[in-house]
Write a protein that binds this DNA or RNA. Structure first.
Length: 423
RNA sequence: GGAGAGGUGUCUGAGUGGUCGAAAGAGCAAGCCUGGAAAGUUUGUAUACUCGCAAGGGUAUCGAGGGUUCGAAUCCCUCCCUCUCCGCCA
């Protein structure tokens, strides 16, 4: 959520920046500014009248002590009119605040200056590419067939238990999952991230805090009886750890990591490009989250990007880094890098990580602030990135590392899997 | 699920209708003291909105929302949450 003060004082810049995200509803911005104007006027009026009423109440107290009953009666008559006005203005103010909030929530975040214009995935900038795409034998298999061949992931069983998009990992498949989670967590810990194990069901306030609600309601599984949501990413509970918190400036940046399963409804996505592990309703992910000082958040963003790339290099996977264009990035982010790994058998890039700086877009909703020794509390910046999402890493490992002998496990993982081959 | 207790500032904790943004203590910060530190001592120590160039002023906030009253942290109602005991249970 953008800050109203900023919009008020920088309308032209706001419009220009929003245009890069292909947001053209300029009327909305005008409407917001108008509502805000109204709100402030109403606030002032209300405050003045409240002050008058407070004064009258104080006078009654004094007069009562002096026993001047008649004078008290006079004041009482006068204040009844004030009370009515307070009620009317108060209701009006509440209404205006609600309207303002509703409209404000509709505005996307302003993109960073480095964000290229563009409408979709084709306009993303490839800013880095690393590794050599493996050359596979002609009889190479996509990962969903390898999964069957080595009996490590059972999609059919998942269908029976739950439905499509909920695979069952078996044997070395299950162990590989566990190995990856531990590997990712160990790496994150070594890089200074404190591990947390958060709830995977969250309430509405948390969903609102990180901006999944209200607009992405349909993407999350909702437990109606208790009005809770299954998390689509650990970003939600981990970032919400700092909701309504004022942290010490010297404690920044705050670095957390956590492993959780993630749940996404992915309504409307079916077909060949979502086969196998390519897109699931439930998957595992290790997430890194930082709360940063506004002056340092882009440095932090770079550092997170490098950290994620190191993981991919350690896993020996060919990858590339994209700078998302205005049209393809999430409406909440100011800057996003996507990391994609090469899946040799499918001959396509798959996104395994997305690292974003949200600047104050989330912290404004979260009321996540920091404060130095002097000066006012101000909004912190929030960032997060996948480090990493498991299924597509597994897909890529299976496809790229398939040989006659079986599937080779990358060296760094062997201490975790305790086996070198899936065969 | 049943019965009871309770939700106050960074924390502990007082406050049952007016002088309460809120005692006291702790913590924290600054000053004094000290060779330096501890102890001692003094002062300060919430957030948001709003008016103002500023100094400063106004308003709101004692779990949330309503109500009673000239006036509510204090009384009434609803909801949420926490704790204790019982039941159930990994």
């Amino acid at each position: 959520m953008l800050q109203i003060n900023y919009i008020r004082e920088n309308k032209e810049q706001v419009l220009a920046r929003l245009a890069i995200k292909n947001f053209k509803n300029f009327n909305l911005v005008d409407e917001i500014i108008h509502l805000d104007e109204n709100r402030r006027q109403t606030q002032s009026k209300l405050d003045a009248i409240s002050a008058e009423a407070n004064l009258a109440a104080k006078q009654v107290g004094d007069l009562m002590r002096q026993g001047k009953k008649e004078a008290v009666e006079v004041i009482k008559i006068n204040t009844s009119a004030l009370k009515e006005q307070i009620k009317t203005l108060g209701d009006e103010l509440t209404k205006l605040e609600e309207q303002l909030q509703q409209q404000l929530v509709l505005l996307p975040n302003l993109p960073h200056i480095s964000v290229p214009k563009g409408v979709g995935a084709d306009d993303n900038e490839i800013i880095f590419e690393h590794g050599v795409k493996p050359t596979l034998a002609t009889n190479a298999l996509p990962h969903w067939e390898l999964a069957v061949k080595y009996d490590i992931i059972d999609f059919e069983l998942g269908n029976k238990i739950t439905g499509a998009g909920f695979p069952v990992y078996k044997g070395k498949g299950a162990k590989l999952q566990r190995a990856l989670i531990n590997f990712f967590l160990d790496r994150a810990e070594a890089a200074g991230y404190s591990e947390v194990q958060p709830p995977i069901l969250v309430n509405e306030a948390s969903g609102f805090g990180t901006a999944q609600l209200p607009d992405k309601e349909g993407q999350m599984y909702h437990v109606g009886l208790d009005n809770l949501y299954l998390i689509p990413t650990a970003e939600v509970p981990i970032t919400n750890l700092y909701r309504d918190v004022i942290v010490k400036e010297e404690d920044l940046p705050i670095k957390n990591c956590g492993y959780t399963p993630c749940f996404r409804r992915e309504a409307g996505s079916y077909g060949a490009h979502v086969r196998g592990l390519n897109r699931l309703h439930q998957f595992d992910k290790v997430e890194i989250v930082q709360v940063a000082h506004p002056d340092q958040s882009y440095q932090v963003h770079d550092e997170m990007s490098k950290y994620i790339q190191n993981l991919l290099q350690a896993l020996e996977l060919p990858y590339r880094v994209l700078r998302l264009c205005g049209g393809d990035m999430s409406s909440h982010a100011a800057l996003t890098f996507d990391m994609e790994v090469w899946c040799a058998a499918q001959a396509r890039w798959l996104e395994v990580s997305s690292v974003s700086n949200f600047e104050t877009f989330q912290s404004n909703r979260l009321k996540l602030r920091f404060k130095g020794k002097e000066g006012k509390a101000q909004l912190a910046h929030t960032l997060n990135g996948s480090a990493l999402a498991l299924p597509r890493i597994v897909a890529s490992l299976l496809e790229n590392n398939q040989t006659e002998k079986g599937i080779r496990i990358p060296k760094v993982l062997v201490p975790y899997t305790k086996f070198e081959w899936i065969d």
